[in-house]
Simulated assay, not measured.
Amino acid sequence: MEIETLDELDDHLDSDGPLRGLRLQGLDLTTYGARLAAHGDLTGLVVLGGTVPVPVAELLLTRGAIIFPGVADAPVDPWRGLYLPSDLYAGLEDGYSSTPDARAYAWFVDAQLRTDAYCTLVRAIHDDSVTDELDEFVQGRSVVGIMGGHALQRNSAAYAGAAQLGHALAEEGHLVATGGGPGAMEAANLGALCRSAAALEDAIGHIAGVPGFRPDVTSWAATALAARDVVVGDQPQAPTETMGPSARSLGIPTWFYGHEPPNVFCDVIAKYFSNAIREEGLLARSNGGIVVLDGAAGTVQEVFQAVTPLFYASDDAPLPPLVLVGREHWTERVPVWATVQALAAGRPMADAIHLVDSIDEVLPLLGPPTP
């Protein structure tokens, strides 16, 4: 049983329930020494991160608990789980290089630390914590994944189209999930975040003056954060553990592609160090379907990762639709459609794959939310 808030811990201690098997994650246990000691044997209690003063730590260890301490010299808290955009872009006023997002990427690619066993462990713990909270966040939701290239410019018709698609899906009740980066991913997240077509149009107009993240990530992100403030208004951000039912926009980026900064138009961001875990997780959680917009190598990789479980699905398994948007793109410029069709021939997946000309044809293929 995981306990992630002090209120939950108080309730459990008041109930006199056993502590064996509990996982206390990210809690400040400064004032809890006596209450924990009252339970005697603490064998099987695991403390993950948080604040554990030396006297409390000694008490826990001598009574059989296991403590995984916080990490002081890493640029991320490995126990924290999901991020808000403001977490990753804190300090942007001093330039993107000073933000936690940029510092985490620099730490990740540091040649001396890349294979260091301690740093590898920290990254693994971090990604597992993200996965743990992400599972809770999407539980019970119909998630539609939108894939597409990072190079799409904010002032293009294609960007506006991707944003309109994200908005339409969110209005239907789907949680819109993307790779969390720039371009088509940003557009879809922006569309989902906006609660009206008018707000979406205004937001695109606000950010179009900085059409891409190159060469200046700082201006690109600052313009987007200002637009986000207008979209969400003065409402405070809800804690991630209570946002699941109301969230509309989710980003799942990676520091593996750290040269592509995360977009800020997500309700929450699940950012990973491992791209393999991130990509598999994004596709596996897209239980409402996957929509693929124009893209190049990275998007093609995602297409075939999505195809693999469809190919091996049993005859009676319900299959979420895979919709490729842009007939000319996917049959001529990047001709993967013929291969997808060939793999699907004679298999249940043949009914799940679709090639359409425009985003207007997508929504009827996905249907209503079915988590």
Rank of each mutant, 00 (worst) to 15 (best):
T339R: 14
F273G: 02
M349P: 00
A296K: 12
P335L: 13
Q153C: 06
L366F: 00
Q112K: 14
S314L: 04
S286N: 04
L293D: 01
A317Q: 15
P262C: 02
S274N: 10
S286V: 07
V232S: 03
T370L: 08
D316M: 01
L13P: 05
A192F: 08
P211E: 04
A227S: 07
I277T: 07
G40Y: 12
S15Q: 11
M185V: 09
D360E: 15
D7N: 07
L113K: 15
P261A: 01
I66E: 13
P18F: 03
V356Q: 03
T178I: 06
I125E: 01
P253K: 00
L319P: 00
C119F: 11
L22M: 11
N287E: 07
A124L: 04
R35N: 06
G161R: 13
V138K: 04
A226H: 12
V292P: 00
I359C: 13
V323E: 06
S314N: 08
Q301R: 08
V130A: 08
Y118V: 09
D135P: 03
V232Q: 03
L282T: 00
V340H: 08
A306E: 04
L343H: 10
V340T: 05
P369K: 10
D132L: 15
A306P: 01
A199V: 10
G179R: 01
A34W: 01
R195Q: 14
C266P: 04
A350L: 07
R214W: 11
D10M: 06
D28T: 09
G212C: 10
R214K: 13
P53S: 11
D234S: 15
A306K: 01
V109M: 10
V71I: 15
H167T: 02
D28R: 08
L6T: 14
T99Y: 02
L22N: 08
L27I: 14
E186F: 01
Q112W: 10
T240D: 14
R154G: 07
C266I: 02
M147N: 06
G212V: 11
V47D: 07
A338C: 05
A151R: 14
A270H: 02
V130K: 08
A111M: 07
L9A: 08
R333I: 05
S98M: 14
H206L: 06
G179K: 04
L355N: 11
A198C: 03
P55S: 12
G33R: 15
A187N: 05
E8Y: 01
E186W: 01
D77V: 09
A37R: 12
D87N: 14
W255Q: 00
G70C: 06
G91W: 04
Q153P: 02
V336D: 05
G21F: 07
L152I: 15
D87M: 11
W330E: 13
D315A: 15
D357K: 03
L134H: 10
A160P: 05
S98Y: 05
R333H: 09
Y159T: 01
R228W: 00
L363A: 13
V291G: 00
R20P: 00
H174G: 00
T242G: 02
